[in-house]
Simulated assay, not measured.
Amino acid sequence: MPWVVPSASGTRQMHILLIGAGGHGRAVLETLRDAGWPPPAGVLDDNPASAGLSGIPLLGPLAAAEALRQQGLEAAHVALGDNLRRQALGEWLASLGYALPVIRHPSAVVAGSARIGDGSVLLPRVVVGAAAEVGRHAILNTGCIVEHDSRLEDAVHIAPGAVLGGGVRIGATALVGLGAALKPGVAVGARAVVGVGAAVISDVAPGLCVGGTPAVPLR
C-alpha cells in the first residue's frame, strides 16, 4: 500500500493513520474527507468488537502502530475524546517518529497570527482569533470560538458551541463543555471541567468542576 501520494502542487500528502474508531473518530474521518485529504491508511482500535470506520481498513490494536511505522507509514492522529489518553498516545506516536499534522475542516476560520499545535483537530465552523495559541493534541469541536490572545495548553477539549472571550487561558487536559461561555481574561486550570452551558466569570482552579450561571463549584 502506498503511504504517500503526490499532490497537484508537487508536495507530498500523507495517508494518515487514525487511532480510535468511536464517535470522535467518525467526526475526524469526515473532516479529513471534507478537507480533501487522501484516504486514511486505516484505523487502530483496542476494542476487539470494534467495527472500525466506514470505508477504511481496521488494522488491529494500537500496538500495531510500531510495525506500521517501520513499514513506512509517516503520519498519525489520535481521534479519542479522553484528554489524558489522547495526549499520552499522541506523544507515544511522536516518539515512534510519526508526524502529527493539524487536521482542519475547510469551514474553520483561523487568524493568520494564531498558532495551532501538532496533533490538534479543528472541526466544522471553528473560529480561532488573532494571536491565539492552541497546544498539542487539542480538540476544537464544532462551532466553538477561541477569541484573540487566548492560550490553550496541550490536550484541551473545547466542546461544540463553547465561546472563549479574548485572553482566556485554559490549562492542559481541561474540558470546556457544550455551549459554555468564558469571560475575557479568565483562567481555567489544568484538568478542570467547565459544565454544559456554564457562564464562567472568574478563574477556575486546577482540577475543579464548575457549572451554572454564573459558574460555581460542583460536587
Score class of each variant (00 low, 15 high):
Leu58Gly: 07
Val134Thr: 14
Gln87Gly: 10
Ala172Leu: 05
Gly212Ser: 08
Ala190Tyr: 05
Pro106Gln: 09
Val4Gln: 02
Leu123Trp: 05
Ala49Ser: 14
Glu133His: 14
Gly90Pro: 10
Glu133Thr: 13
Val78His: 07
Gly195Cys: 07
Pro106Lys: 10
Gly36Phe: 02
Asp154Asn: 15
Leu59Gln: 06
His24Glu: 04
Trp37Ser: 09
Arg12Trp: 02
His24Gln: 09
Leu100Tyr: 00
Ala132Met: 01
Gly55His: 07
Gly207Ala: 10
Val121Pro: 03
Ala64Gly: 07
Asp34Ile: 00
Ser95Gln: 15
His77Cys: 00
Thr213Lys: 12
Ala76Ser: 13
Gly177Pro: 07
Asp46Tyr: 12
Ser9Gln: 01
Glu30Thr: 11
Val28Ser: 05
Val176Lys: 00
Val78Phe: 03
Ile116Arg: 07
Ala132Asn: 02
Ala35Val: 14
Gly135Asp: 14
Gly97Gln: 12
Val163Cys: 15
Pro101Asn: 04
Arg169His: 13
Val128Glu: 06
Val194Ser: 11
Ile139Gly: 09
Ala67Asn: 14
Gln70Arg: 15
Ala162Leu: 09
Val146Cys: 08
Ala76Cys: 03
Asp34Val: 10
Ser120Trp: 02
His77Asp: 02
Leu123Arg: 00
Leu96Cys: 06
Ser107Asp: 03
Ala94Val: 10
Gly112Ile: 07
Met14Cys: 00
Ala187Val: 05
Gly72Ile: 00
Gly112Ala: 13
Ala67Leu: 13
Val186Cys: 09
Ala138Arg: 02
Ala159Gly: 09
Ala215Lys: 02
Ala65Phe: 00
Trp92Ser: 14
Arg104Gly: 03
Pro184Cys: 09
Gln13Glu: 04
Val168Gly: 12
Gly129Val: 10
Asp154Thr: 15
Ser107Ile: 07
Ala198Trp: 06
Pro206Val: 10
Ala65Cys: 11
Thr173Pro: 00
Glu66Ser: 15
Ala198Ser: 06
Val194Trp: 11
Ala94Asn: 06
Arg33Asn: 02
Trp3Tyr: 15
Gly129Glu: 06
Pro61Cys: 08
Gly36Ile: 04
Gly97Ala: 08
Met14Glu: 00
Ile16Met: 01
Ile201Arg: 05
Trp37Ile: 01
Ala192Asn: 00
Gly129Arg: 03
Gly195Val: 11
Ala88Phe: 00
Gly212Cys: 06
Thr11Met: 05
Gly143Ile: 08
Val216Glu: 14
Gly135Ala: 03
Gly177His: 05
Ala192Glu: 05
Val210Ala: 05
His137Tyr: 14
Met1Pro: 12
